[in-house]
Simulated scan of single mutants.
Amino acid sequence: MKIAVYGPEFNERSHSAIAALFAYLGSKSAEVFVDAHFFNSILEHSSINIKANTLGTFTDLDDSFDLMISVGGDGTILRAITHVKDLDIPIVGINTGRLGFLATIKRDDIIGALDQIFEGKYRISKRSVLSVTTNQKESNFELDFALNEVTVSRKNTTSMISIETWLDDEYLNSYWADGLIISTPTGSTGYSMSCGGPVIMPESDSLVITPIAPHNLNARPLVISAKHKIRLNVSGREHEYLVSLDSRINSLDNSIGITIKKAAFDIKMIELKAGTFIQTLRKKLLWGADPRN
């Protein structure tokens, strides 16, 4: 098995998880390659003997890899998919962060979880991805896709912006708001949920349009079929607005419209028996818990 390991800058909080991961991988007949920045950070800031259990580093991936392991939080997984792109490499996350909707392996369950993966005792959860294009000939985005959401928001102003929204060729609404979130089912438990959007099961073929602090209270979150193309045109007091693809922020001129649609590829997330989406919802959102007891 050929494995890519990705992580952010090393911090002491993740020391035990990283040590356990590489000790385990070193005991298996696996080819292990580590993100170059993560590799150097571990060498510089820890005593973990990472060289003994790896074959090398990577800056880009190809389709020869069988698995990517992300070490961090959900944000780390969002950065990891920028390497995976459309290569069909399954991803699993070891959670050394906080909430952990995407990174579901706990620090104290790394060995058991990896045993399941090496034994093939898991399922693949296919997650929809959004692609973004502009009405310009050349793309304004270095990476033009997002796993969680695409967000349009105001820039350098406290005034609201107007976001003219079309579904395919049919006018939907002009949102007077701080911004607008277009979310996948995966992203429905993120920024969209914090702005009042619904939670959607990961493999639903749907998208959510969620306004951010709308001026009109009757502008509610809307669930639509993922077959639709969403076209947005922004106007306001400032000449530019912000477009965020997951955590990657771009600044666009108001004259540039964007189109958002479901991408032609999915991201494959590994789901273990003890880490299903419903179990994660119950744990993270305390569903079924009675605080009186």
Results as ranks from 00 to 15, higher is better:
Leu78Gln: 10
Leu67Gly: 06
Phe38Asp: 09
Leu55Glu: 15
Gly56Met: 10
Asp88Met: 06
Lys121Ala: 15
Asn95Ser: 11
His83Tyr: 15
His45Trp: 04
Asn135Pro: 08
Glu164Phe: 00
Leu87Ala: 13
Asn148Ser: 05
Tyr122Pro: 05
Lys85Gly: 08
Arg107His: 05
Ala113Val: 09
Lys121Leu: 14
Trp176His: 12
Phe101Asn: 05
Ile111Trp: 01
Gly97Ala: 06
Gly73Lys: 01
Ser47Asn: 11
Ser47Thr: 13
Ser46Trp: 00
Val92His: 07
Val34Ser: 10
Thr59Ser: 15
Ile42Trp: 00
Phe101Thr: 05
Asp115Cys: 04
Asp178Trp: 00
Arg154Trp: 02
Tyr175Cys: 13
Ile124Ser: 07
Val71Arg: 01
Asn140Ala: 14
Gly112Glu: 11
Leu99Gln: 02
Thr96Ser: 12
Ala113Tyr: 00
Leu114Gly: 09
Lys106Phe: 09
Lys106His: 13
Gln136Glu: 15
Phe38Glu: 09
Ala80Gln: 04
Ser46Pro: 04
Asp115Lys: 08
Ile110Leu: 06
Ile105Glu: 08
Ile42Thr: 04
Ile48Asn: 11
Gly112Met: 05
Leu172Tyr: 03
Leu167His: 02
Ser70Asp: 08
Arg154Cys: 08
Asp109Gln: 14
Gln136Asp: 13
Asn135Trp: 01
Val129Pro: 02
Asn49Lys: 11
Gln136Arg: 12
Asp169Lys: 06
Tyr171Phe: 15
Phe58Ile: 14
Val152Asp: 03
Glu142His: 08
Phe33Cys: 14
Ile91Asp: 09
Lys85Leu: 12
Asn140Thr: 09
Arg154Val: 11
Ala36Val: 09
Leu43Lys: 15
Pro90Ile: 13
Ile50Tyr: 01
Asn156Arg: 06
Phe65Ala: 13
Asp144Tyr: 03
Thr54Gln: 10
Val132Ser: 09
His45Asp: 13
Asp168Leu: 09
Ser47Cys: 07
Gly73Phe: 03
Glu149Asn: 07
Ile124Lys: 03
Ala103Lys: 03
Thr76Ser: 12
Thr82Lys: 14
Arg127Cys: 07
Arg79His: 14
Phe101Lys: 00
Val150Thr: 13
Thr151Pro: 00
Ile69Val: 14
Phe38Gly: 07
Lys51Ala: 15
Asp115Asn: 13
His45Gln: 13
Arg79Tyr: 06
Leu99Phe: 04
Arg127Tyr: 00
Val92Gly: 11
Tyr171Arg: 08
Leu102Ser: 05
Asp168Phe: 03
Ile91Trp: 04
Ser162Met: 07
Met160Tyr: 00
Phe58Arg: 12
Trp166Ser: 11
Val32Met: 04
Gly179Gln: 04
Asn135Met: 08
Leu114Pro: 09
Thr76Leu: 02
Asn40Met: 04
Thr157Ser: 14
Gly112Cys: 07
Asp66Val: 06
Ala103Arg: 02
Val92Thr: 14
Trp166Ala: 08
Thr133Ile: 15
Asn135Thr: 12
Ser70Asn: 08
Asn148Lys: 03
Asp108Arg: 04
Ala52Ile: 06
Gly100Trp: 02
Leu147Met: 06
Ser162Leu: 09
Asp60Tyr: 09
Arg127Pro: 03
Asp60Gln: 14
Leu87Cys: 10
Leu99Met: 11
Arg107Phe: 00
Gly112Lys: 04
Pro90Tyr: 04
Lys155Leu: 15
Arg98Ile: 03
Ala146His: 01
Thr76Arg: 01
Asn95Phe: 02
Asp88Ala: 14
Arg127Gln: 07
Arg154Glu: 10
Asp115Tyr: 01
Asn40Arg: 03
Gly97Val: 02
Lys155Arg: 11
